[in-house]
Nucleic acid binder design. Sequence first.
DNA 1: GTTAAAAGTGACAGCGCTGACATTTTGTTC
DNA 2: GAACAAAATGTCAGCGCTGTCACTTTTAAC
Lengths: 346, 346
Amino acid sequence: MANNIAPAPITIQDVADLVQVSPKTVSRVINNEPRVRPATRERILKAIDELNYRPNLNARGLASNRSFLIGLFCARPGDYLSEFQAGAVERCREASLHLMVEPWDVEGPNIQKQIDTLLGQLRLEGVILLPPLSDHRLVLNKLQQAAIPVVRVAPQENLNMAPSVGINDYAAAREVTAHFIKLGHRRIGFILGHPEHGATQQRYLGFVDEMRAHQIPVVPELVQTGNFVFADGLVCAERMLRAASPPTAIFASNDDMAAAAISMARKFGLDLPRQLSVAGFDDAPLATMIWPELTTVRQPVAAMARRAADLIIQLEPRRNGWPERMPRHLFDHELIVRNSTARPAR
Amino acid sequence: MANNIAPAPITIQDVADLVQVSPKTVSRVINNEPRVRPATRERILKAIDELNYRPNLNARGLASNRSFLIGLFCARPGDYLSEFQAGAVERCREASLHLMVEPWDVEGPNIQKQIDTLLGQLRLEGVILLPPLSDHRLVLNKLQQAAIPVVRVAPQENLNMAPSVGINDYAAAREVTAHFIKLGHRRIGFILGHPEHGATQQRYLGFVDEMRAHQIPVVPELVQTGNFVFADGLVCAERMLRAASPPTAIFASNDDMAAAAISMARKFGLDLPRQLSVAGFDDAPLATMIWPELTTVRQPVAAMARRAADLIIQLEPRRNGWPERMPRHLFDHELIVRNSTARPAR
DNA sequence: GTTAAAAGTGACAGCGCTGACATTTTGTTC
DNA sequence: GAACAAAATGTCAGCGCTGTCACTTTTAAC
């Protein structure tokens, strides 16, 4: 194997020498500081390009006590993560930051240790918290103590601890419910998500309120709790379908569980969507991979991710303190009607 | 908002002072170097723990010209990525390294720039290449020039440029094909994956060879190329089903496309699996979320990821040069038979 | 007990950059 | 064209750690 010698790395001094200025001036250009004559800036930029100079992040970080790292904390990987990640990375790049993804074991006892290590070693410049971490008190407190900018994604409570991004889950859930009702459904089942997940409460609330608004009773038997995973959806759906008076429609808190409901309905030999309408939430890729295709709610995940990263980047410069108000950035959702929902059979 | 003062960070000097040794000795302990009296090591370890000292990565990196960063390069996020990521991160943590995920635009013209930035700025200590990047000459060359350890995941060609992890796609594909044949299928369609993706060739070869071994002709009309995505699967399946003499079975190179084949078959009003058997590859979560559930091949993705990270870590210490032989780490796959495959209708 | 080798420890410079502050240059005003 | 302010640039130390090499102590050998 060839044993290529690493070429002598180019330093800020090399650039300074070439342009005949002090390293400090080059530094100013790199960091986009003002007070550099446009002509000088031009020459330096040119030299940087010519020499193909790349500042050493370690040196930069050591001298300025930065890390150029933003964390994306999440409980477990999933589709949502992938998409979110892509959006966040993109934005980070523009600010020449880097994104590191740290899957966490939320349940485990060593979350404390994990957080200490990450904050101590990495000195992250900001952290994006995906649910259910968005509402994890311990994590939030630690982060606040360390004075690290945080953005919470789809948080449950409005803790006024950090800005957040999300959609109006409540309104979206009302829309889906209204869609069912308009089709003529009255016995509507609901599958709740993970109890600690931000969206869970809001989506359920939206469902209940819309039902109430139409004076339709919410039957306890037809409200089941899943964990946002397919397997749980199966169980929940089965319970409902076995009920003395089964639902004509099921509203699941996410697409995985909705797919499970469809799968279970098929096992019960139901004709879909005639005998059972199902709606999900998220518009995951899965939604159009099953038959019938899912009626669901689309979230602009990538846009939300970009904003989240952006907020960190914006927040970051003023190290001392959060803005007084904690803005909740709400994005527009979209009800996507496909053929998993239809008028109920007579 | 509370404006917590960042506590004065603890440095190596603090530890040294407490134990009454030189910083260098503490450094030796941190880096697991030999030539430290066990008793001294003990005392230092204790002090580190007491003070809750965390070495500053930037300083460490600057002084020793390291970065403690491993890259995971991928073309676009997906389920496979999530799972892989989790496995790799886990292993990296054990070696107190960090994983950063960099989604790349493979097609784009600026891949060159991206790579330069990443290597120049981040000075990654190693890179794991996910397909189709595993076979990307430009990327591989750059990485080799920079003398950065690389592990290729599921590579197409055995370039002898870096160790790799993967399964025996060829053998697995033969097994799936044999399964079809044993059930009594003769007209079997095949949906190829992304042409640059490592597994594509091998899987197709396995299919062809097994067909040949049974003297069953491979009908050109029934071999279609997709891109590993659902939408392409639809198109490929439609073409086959429209053929003068349509297949009784379709073998798709991955689960997404298999799901598409099922979806399309349904649109043709076929009774599944009686009138059409379908098999996929990967055992994605999707495989059990559709009906009928997919017969497919399971890869031990998480284990492969761990190994990949491990290889980087192993490779890393001896900076000068690759091992002579480029080991291909092959993992055991598993044929998972579910109900998407059955005897063909008479 | 002497001696050489090996093991253990320390002194010190410097990695590449930026913060704080000093100095020089330019622009503006009368 | 002085006098001053503002803008532009430079000087220099030091961020926290490790590499190198020098030094001291222990061990082993005779």
